[in-house]
Design a protein around this nucleic acid. Structure first.
Length: 469
DNA sequence: TTTTGAGTTGTTCGA
DNA sequence: GTCGAACAACTCAAA
């Protein structure tokens, strides 16, 4: 080993020091070690100034920086375009290798390919590690050597190939040869300096690794009841870990370890959800065109006829369907939406409002703190019946039935639509159907009348989707 | 090559 | 109110 041997660890969506594959690999390579996080202008320029994710990322980066300083190193911070800044930084620091954890999204693949090519030209190397999945995108293939496009066979293959060793957290490396940060890249700029003044969103979950680990611990006790409780948005039945998995403040192996630590139907059900995550990840990897159009070719030419004013009402949570409106307000206010509600509002946008699923997908992408391209696209295409393993087109969620079933006492609705708190448990799901409303409550004034009639729109959706053949 | 079984999350209708 | 059947075939994946 020469004294000039140096590596650069590039943090992206893996904002933790524990159980981080690229960190383990970089440390194992020996030599001097630098670490960097880039606020990537190529990504940030598309985000609104009140984006809820930036405060979360900023907090996690600050934690990471403090953690590295406690270990004798530091975190370099750049506000730049990653594709050009990383190779330049590697040159400036004299690093022969840049370590990072593999990212499967189309933009990331393109960016990493550009970085790898630049590094190669200057005699350096980009080393990408498997970290955010248990199985790489091409590790599980059908007997024909083709990618899986149906969940259940994929899930069976996943479980068959799985070994607990694959989900065992890696720990932390022995003290590495951490290097201090050059003065130019030492400071963590405040959010306002990055173009993101305080967000108007009040996230449901606290940011940072400590908060993520706390959630994980708390969820361990709820896990046995996960299978049933997870469907009720008014109950604390879900883990709330999605945003932590998105930014890596909790690792996938830590989550898997919890799922495997219990032998009950809740734990098994949750493991399936984690497998869904990998299913959609590998799907988008093999079929990147699905990011911008219907997976099923026969649905690429659908003529959506919904009004723009309906889309605006959907975004704002004033469609007149309480469960839909409460869900959209949860999204707008907290940057999060319960999974059951994501299905309900997606079905409503596509099948009731007859609006292109991609507009809903884009709205979720802008608002969801846990936004993940593969999972979001997969979910929307499932709900829109345009996906690989989609809901059949004639299965159209009834927003009132769903509301009665999964929020029977209107607990969730009341939380986000206080104007309906005075309605009884029956009327709250469909105020326009109530025989009597509380005195002083006027439909159309206190709360909107439904903007569409579900029974009518359902027939239109059946006609629209059914005639494609 | 052919056959066989199966496919996240539902709704509506009629008895 | 409860229950079972119909909804439409089609494609995937494995035997």
């Amino acid at each position: 080993m020469t004294t000039t041997n140096a590596s650069l660890l590039w943090f992206r969506r893996d904002l933790r020091l524990f159980d981080n594959t690229a960190l383990m690999e970089a440390a194992a390579a020996g030599g001097r070690l630098f670490a960097v996080f880039i606020f990537d202008r190529a990504i940030l320029q598309h985000l609104p100034a009140d984006d809820a994710r930036l405060p979360f990322i900023h907090h996690a980066v600050a934690e990471l920086k403090a953690g590295l300083q406690a270990r004798g190193g530091d975190l370099l911070i750049l506000h730049d375009e990653a594709a050009s800044a990383i190779p330049a930084l590697a040159t400036a620091l004299g690093c022969q290798r840049v370590y990072a954890n593999r990212d499967y999204e189309p933009y990331a693949r393109q960016r990493d390919a550009a970085v790898a090519a630049s590094l190669e030209r200057q005699g350096a190397e980009l080393v990408l590690c498997k970290d955010q999945v248990v199985f790489e995108c091409s590790q599980l293939l059908t007997g024909q050597g083709k990618p899986y496009t149906v969940f259940t066979p994929y899930m069976r293959a996943w479980r068959k190939a799985f070994h607990p060793q694959l989900a065992t957290p890696l720990g932390e490396p022995a003290p590495a040869q951490w290097q201090p940060a050059p003065a130019a890249h030492r400071a963590l700029p405040p959010l306002a300096a990055l173009g993101f003044p305080a967000s108007s969103i009040t996230p449901a979950a606290k940011p940072g690794r400590e908060a993520g680990l706390q959630l994980l611990q708390r969820f361990a006790r709820k896990l046995p009841h996960y299978k049933t409780l997870r469907d009720y948005p008014g109950e604390p039945g879900v883990s709330g870990l999605s945003v932590h998995l998105r930014f890596g403040t909790v690792s996938v192996r830590e989550a898997m370890s919890l799922a495997l630590s219990q032998q009950n139907e809740g734990a098994d059900c949750w493991l399936n959800e984690l497998i869904w995550r990998e299913f959609y990840q590998q799907l988008l990897w093999h079929f990147p065109e699905a990011a911008t159009q219907s997976f099923k070719p026969e649905y690429r030419q659908l003529q959506f006829t919904g009004l723009d004013s309906w889309f605006d009402a959907w975004c704002d949570g004033r469609t007149g369907y309480p469960i839909v409106d409460a869900a959209m307000r949860q999204l707008n206010q907290t940057g999060y939406m319960h999974n059951r509600l994501r299905m309900i509002v997606a079905s409503f946008l596509v099948k009731d409002l007859l609006i292109d699923w991609r507009r809903g997908e884009a709205y979720f992408a802008a608002k969801l703190m846990d936004f993940d391209l593969a999972a979001n696209n997969g979910g929307w295409q499932w709900a829109a019946s345009t996906g690989c393993d989609a809901q059949p087109y004639f299965r159209i969620f009834n927003p009132v039935t769903q509301s009665e079933k999964f929020d029977p006492e209107g607990r969730f609705i009341r939380r986000y639509l206080p104007e309906l708190a005075c309605l009884d448990n029956k009327a709250i799901h469909a105020p326009w159907q109530a025989k009597t409303l509380p005195p002083g409550f006027v439909l159309g004034q206190n709360y909107p009348e439904p903007i569409v009639d579900h029974a009518v729109q359902r027939q239109q959706a059946l006609a629209l989707f059914g005639k494609q053949d």
